[in-house]
């Protein structure tokens, strides 16, 4: 990983200005003028946002900032009052949610959705796209899908192995721990083989012992050429693995920039202090020692993962 990260010296985002709504060299997802109102509350009001292909972007913001709603809008689980999003240049406005997933953009949920009364293996196999046996008529003729099923099973077993879940293969997903469910949900999303994976707080509520392996997996995703967009509250993690940070508050994008610099941004400080009057910003100390952190987020992750 370290090798990869440092070899990739030409950071595609190096020349991008640190301002909200800025254009990126190679965006995979572009949101334009997206708004969503709940009663009197404007939960999301994003003028413009581009997500760069092949990097890890973190979406942060106080509770209730509209991050989950934004995810819902991007994945078409909810429809915006105004605005459009394009994925790989394709307008998604009237694309149903399941088609969005088939196009290569998969999201996970903040509250995990383990399919409790199915085994871990069945959960995984569900993620595979293009299984012919998922059509009614072919399902009646098992020989038409058996061999494909074998391939899917092998792939699922390999992923479970990588996620250190192999020993749970035949357990019902309902018996998993909270952290294991997060792992399963992420692994299941990977079975889709997406281009863009959107993770809503993948580390939330996860046993610290598992956190580190989750972090590794997120960086591995990038190394495999996937684009990752994730929501996270823990600033240490954001610093550690993300290449770019987008800050939301009260539905709006208020700042963008590399993780090391984002804490200095006055708008961000205001947004967080406005939300937690008494609590100081978690990363204030680090912003003081700005040079140190900005030096190498990639190094940080490599040190801990080795």
């Amino acid at each position: 990983m370290t090798a990869d990260a440092s070899a990739d010296m030409t950071d595609p985002l190096a020349d991008v200005a640190w301002e909200p709504g800025v254009a990126k060299p190679d965006p995979i997802l572009v949101a334009d003028n997206i708004t969503r109102q709940f009663g009197g509350l404007k939960a999301v009001d994003v003028d413009h946002l581009e997500i760069q292909r092949g990097v890890i972007t973190a979406l942060i913001g106080p509770n209730g900032a509209g991050k989950t709603t934004f995810f819902n809008l991007m994945s078409n689980f909810d429809s915006p009052d105004t605005g459009t999003q394009t994925f790989n240049g394709k307008d998604l406005t009237n694309t149903p949610a399941h088609k969005v997933a088939n196009l290569g953009m998969v999201r996970t949920f903040q509250l995990t959705k383990a399919l409790s009364k199915m085994t871990v293996m069945d959960n995984m196999k569900l993620g595979a796209v293009g299984q012919k046996g998922e059509s009614f008529w072919r399902a009646l003729l098992p020989f038409t899908w058996r061999s494909q099923e074998k391939g899917i099973e092998t792939r699922a077993a390999a992923l479970l192995e990588r996620f250190k879940m192999a020993h749970m293969t035949d357990e019902f997903a309902g018996t998993l721990s909270g952290g294991q469910r997060k792992l399963l949900e992420m692994a299941r999303a990977l079975m889709v083989e997406p281009e863009l994976v959107m993770l809503d707080e993948p580390m939330a509520g996860v046993n610290p012992a598992l956190t580190q392996s989750l972090l590794e997996h997120v960086t591995q995703l990038k190394d495999e050429g996937m684009t990752v967009l994730f929501v996270e509250h823990d600033m240490d993690m954001v610093q550690e693995i993300s290449d770019w940070v987008v800050v939301m508050a009260e539905g709006r994008i208020i700042a963008e920039g590399p993780p090391a610099t984002i804490g200095e941004n006055q708008a961000v400080v205001d947004a967080y202090l406005g939300a937690h009057h008494d609590a100081p910003l978690e990363w204030e100390d680090e912003t003081d020692g700005d040079d140190v952190t900005s030096a190498a987020p990639a190094d940080g992750s490599s040190e801990e993962s080795s």
């Binding site: 989950t68 995810f71 819902n72 689980f77 909810d78 999201r107 949920f109 903040q110 509250l111 809503d200």
Partner: peptide, 8 residues
């Protein structure tokens, strides 16, 4: 007069 439910 109902409200929509949230997903996710």
């Amino acid at each position: 007069l109902g409200k929509s439910e949230r997903v996710g």
